[in-house]
Design a binder for these strands. Structure first.
Lengths: 344, 344
DNA sequence: CTGAAAGCGCTTACAG
DNA sequence: CTGAAAGCGCTTACAG
């Protein structure tokens, strides 16, 4: 453990005060060109990096933002998703010279929530979080504290929260319409995500809207939980006497579609000949299965990047006019719906 | 943004000095029972949480540890892996009242490495990192700085580094022997991970050792990169004229085995009837495919947990006797090798 | 224009 | 035994 180099050490080497060295390092006009260069050289030679605690204490900020992962969402959102979010936060964080802290929203030994400690202790200047189940108090209490918070996702109950989101309902509607309008599907099934999560609700709603406005008679829903296994289970439920009474299935995410694949295959049901299927997310798997899966690309990394930028804005400018953003989504057409993409 | 509650505010409410309040809160015997209770009550009422910067500056530590993700390993280790590592670090970190910082090892604008800034700025007290490619200077320079560092994995070139690892060579040897001894495989293929990563090298070595000591004549190796796609590619290479000249395939990880599945299936090659296959990792997918995949369970979360504990030791006690640990691994027998597990 | 004090919040070593 | 100063490293507002 090399002993840390302080500003004082840098200043001493040059023969100025720490205050002068500090100003020199940030290019203050009141420091002469010559001493500025001398200080910079000394700092470089000594490997000076400002002490975070000293700087944070003085500047009254943490130089860090936190990603708080709701316990209840660990099993609903994929590891892929969180890694995309994390990496999306990285570049804006680096640009603001801030660290990224990861925390769950567990209760601490002291009985308060981890995110509260993080903020109250000023270990982070703001928080990015994702939806938990809709009846979880967590998000409400998080937003209720008035701290700088940016949420990822759609929060109809929190109109004042700053949220970066995609229109799950519209996207789900769009991909369902593709099945109906472009492929002539008439007997539809939706394998939903947990319906106590907004994402599950919205994607189901889009499916139902599309079916209703096209006058589709068969538009069933089986509730899953976004995990691969539940996609498989849904298929076992849906297959009656070895046959599937649907010609199109809209899965609420790719993982469930992937889980469905072997079950359909084992039942001798071909994709897309016997049933056309679509997924949602496009975090990686959908591209790699056979057939590859037509899906909605959720730009998780971009969402998180914009969320981080927005959070830094919020932190810098205080509570300001709601700057929620809804990002466009696009469908990626692959073979599972019966399309024959160019690049295939 | 509620204005933070300081110790001074707590002290003022009780009518003692901040110093006394500080001692009261940590149960110093020199504070009377009565005032201790009064201070605790006031702290609770005001929602006092110690300011991290103030405490860190005074205590000369960061109250945080960092997971540094080498750029070069993002594509070799899975998102699953990193999320397991992150969650493994969570509990020890909370127990030590420390934050978990996530960083890549990118270069900063100032030209030094991110991990150096983190340590030199004392934003983290120590680092946990995973292997990058073996010719990457990164790990060497990280360890060379003498900072508290715990590495995840096997580092034959760094005998003095503190590492928490599993014996990839032994595990790979063991699962290969299972194919040979228990299932009578004679014509073996290993689909390796990148051979510029130690993990790839060790898992290949275990395979070769097992084959050699059993006197197996066919023990081929195709190099992949741990991604699903490269498993599929390896199968396309291995299948000659529609047939596979192997009766057993040892994949260096589950993802590549998963990628191989559809290619084998499309070629009409049955598992395990025509070829027995095994994976490595057991982070989730291997359990869910059809057939499910016999694999080595890598306890990534436990590894990271122990790494974090070890790191806190290292931080507290300074550089001390190497406390590297090698964890045992276990094979999970499923259907892809021809076993018929009880729970299936 | 520039030198050097003051103070962010905390905790411990010191003085009484 | 206890009160209150000193100081961690930094930066800006102030005094000269």
């Amino acid at each position: 453990m090399p002993k840390p180099v302080t500003l004082k050490a840098v200043a001493a080497r040059v023969g100025v005060t720490p205050a002068a060295a500090s100003m020199a390092l940030k290019g203050s006009p009141r420091i002469s060109e010559a001493t500025r260069e001398a200080v910079e050289l000394a700092a470089k030679e000594l490997g000076y990096v400002p002490n975070a605690a000293g700087r944070n204490l003085r500047n009254r900020h943490a130089g860090a933002i936190a990603l708080v992962v709701p316990n209840s969402s660990v099993h609903v959102f994929s590891h892929q998703y969180f890694m995309h979010v994390l990496s999306g936060m990285t570049i804006p964080a680096a640009a603001h010279d801030a660290q990224v802290i990861v925390s769950t929203n567990a209760e601490t030994a002291s009985g308060d929530m981890a995110y509260e400690r993080i903020i109250r202790s000023q270990a982070a200047d703001g928080i990015i979080s994702t939806s938990s189940s809709i009846d979880d108090e967590y998000i409400h209490s998080l937003v209720g504290t008035g701290l700088p918070v940016v949420l990822l996702g759609n929060y109809p109950d929190l109109p004042d929260a700053v949220t970066i989101w995609i229109d799950d309902t519209a996207a789900s509607r769009q991909i369902t319409e593709h099945l109906i309008a472009d492929h002539g599907c008439q007997r539809l099934l939706h394998v939903a995500g947990s319906l106590d999560h907004q994402t599950g609700i919205d994607r189901r709603q889009g499916f139902l809207d599309a079916a209703a406005s096209a006058g589709i008679e068969t538009a069933d829903v089986i509730e899953g939980d976004m995990n691969e296994e539940s996609g498989a289970a849904a298929m076992r439920t849906a297959i009656v006497d070895g046959a599937l009474p649907y010609d199109g299935i809209v899965f609420a995410n790719d993982d469930m579609a992937v889980g469905a694949l072997p079950v359909l295959r084992d039942a001798g049901i071909r994709i897309p000949e016997d049933v056309r299927i679509t997924g949602f997310d496009d975090f990686g798997v959908a591209r790699l299965t056979t057939p590859d899966i037509t899906t909605i690309r959720v730009p998780a990394q971009e969402i998180a990047g914009i969320a981080a930028e927005t959070l830094f804005d919020l932190i810098a400018n205080g509570r300001h006019d709601n700057s929620s953003q809804r990002l466009p989504v696009s469908t990626t057409y692959r073979h599972s719906c019966g399309c024959t993409p160019d690049n295939a």
